[in-house]
């Protein structure tokens, strides 16, 4: 298969995906609201964290809003993520099936919606706080869930950062070509 046909096929898949996504979205969102949300998302996406504080909560608020809008605007991603969740729960022989599937679910949504790794890493940091308390009170099962949330969300953030960097490098190379 030549490069151009491959690209054409890819574009066609993206188009199918988008039209299906838009059709589902149309069931519960009015076109005016979609446009409003899209604008907000694009404005927020362009924002980078430039606060001198380590964690700026106003930035976090706008980030969480973006996440909400992105998820709302891309229902197809949620459907795929739920299918993945069910498949993992059914097929997985691991005893932490549900928790594993849940992390994959979050990870997929995050990466598929192009969400910022920063927010997820902050969420993971919050998940670390109860771990020592729960362990001290011997509530090990819940502590395990929080501890793994801390590490897994950070790992997903790291994967997100790697994807982000790879995209940047590719864009740079394409612009050179």
């Amino acid at each position: 298969m030549s490069k151009s046909t491959k690209k054409k096929n890819q574009n066609r898949t993206i188009r199918y995906y988008e039209s299906l996504n838009n059709a589902i979205r149309g069931i519960y969102l009015k076109p005016q609201i979609v446009e409003k949300y899209l604008k907000k998302v694009s404005i927020n996406e362009a924002n980078t964290y430039d606060s001198k504080k380590i964690i700026d909560f106003s930035f976090l608020k706008s980030e969480l809003e973006t996440i909400f809008y992105s998820i709302l605007l891309n229902p197809l991603n949620i459907i795929i993520a739920i299918i993945l969740l069910v498949i993992i729960i059914v097929l997985s022989p691991n005893r932490y099936d549900f928790v594993t599937a849940f992390y994959y679910f979050i990870g997929y949504i995050w990466i598929a919606n192009d969400l910022k790794p920063f927010t997820l890493s902050i969420i993971s940091l919050i998940a670390l706080i109860p771990v020592p308390i729960l362990l001290a009170f011997k509530i090990e099962f819940v502590a395990e869930a929080f501890a793994s949330a801390f590490y897994t969300f950070l790992t997903i953030s790291l994967i997100g950062i790697i994807i982000q960097q790879a995209k940047l490098a590719l864009a740079k190379r394409n612009s050179r070509e």
Partner: peptide
């Protein structure tokens, strides 16, 4: 347990640090 949580912090610190950057 607080000590071990503190040990895990640098890892989170660096991920947060990198996630804030547009380009590494």
């Amino acid at each position: 347990y607080i000590y071990y949580a503190l040990l895990a912090l640098p890892y989170a610190f660096f991920i947060i640090y990198f996630s804030r950057l547009k380009k590494i």
